[in-house]
Amino acid sequence: MIVPSFNEAATVGSVVSDVVHLGYDAIVVDDASADNTAEAAKIDGATVIRLATNLGIGGAVQTGLRYALLLDYDYIVQVDGDGQHDPNAIPLLLAPLIDGTADFVVGSRFMGTPQGYLPPPLRRLGIAWLSILMGRRIRDVTSGFRAMSRQSALMLLSDYPTDYPEPVTLLRALRSGLVVKEVAAAMKPRLHGVSSIVLTRYFSYLTRASLGLLVEYTVSSKRSLEP
C-alpha cells in the first residue's frame, strides 16, 4: 500500500491506521513536506520513506513502487494521503488482481451509482476529455486510487512520468497490453488542504496532460522491464 503524501499531516495518520487495521503493509512516501507529515504517519505497521527534496506526485509514487518491488510485494495499491480514498475499498481494487482477471485496477468515481464526492462539472469535463484522448476505455483517468500487480509495476517503473503520472501511466498500461479494469470506488471530499489541481492551473494541467498523452502515443509500447 503506497501512500504518497505532501503536507498532509492532518489526514495521513488516519489513512495509514485504516490501512494497517485492514491488515496491509503501509508505505508512506513523504514528499519533503513542510509540516510533520512523516511524524503523523509513524504508526506501527507503517514504513515512512522521506524524500530529501520535493519530487512531486510522480517521484513519490515511483519511490513507493521501487520500495515495494525491492521487498517483493505481489500487489501494490496506491492511496492518496489526503483521506479522499476510502481504505475500505482496497479489497475491491485488489480482487481482480488476485483472481487474475486484471493487471491494473483503477478506483473510479464515475462508476456504479455515484454516491460519494464527485468533482465539479468543469473538472469532470476535463477528465472526460482526457478519457476521450485515451480512447474512452477508462472513465476516471486521473484517479489516484489504483492497484497493480508486480509485473505491471515493473513495466511502469521502466520510465515513470514525473509530471502527470495518472493519465500517462494508465495509457501506457493500456497500450502495453495489460488488462486494465475500472471498479466503482466512491470518494470522500478532501478533509483538509487543497487539491494539487487548483482551478487557475486547470487549463495548464489539461494542456500539458493532453500533450503528455499524445507524446506517450508516439513512444513504442514495447518497453524493457527494468526495475
Partner: peptide, 14 residues
C-alpha cells in the same frame, strides 16, 4: 538523475 538519486537515498535511509 537527481530524481533517481533522491529516490534511492530515501529508500536506503528508510
Amino acid at each position: 538523475k537527481l530524481i533517481r538519486l533522491t529516490e534511492e537515498q530515501a529508500i536506503l535511509s528508510s
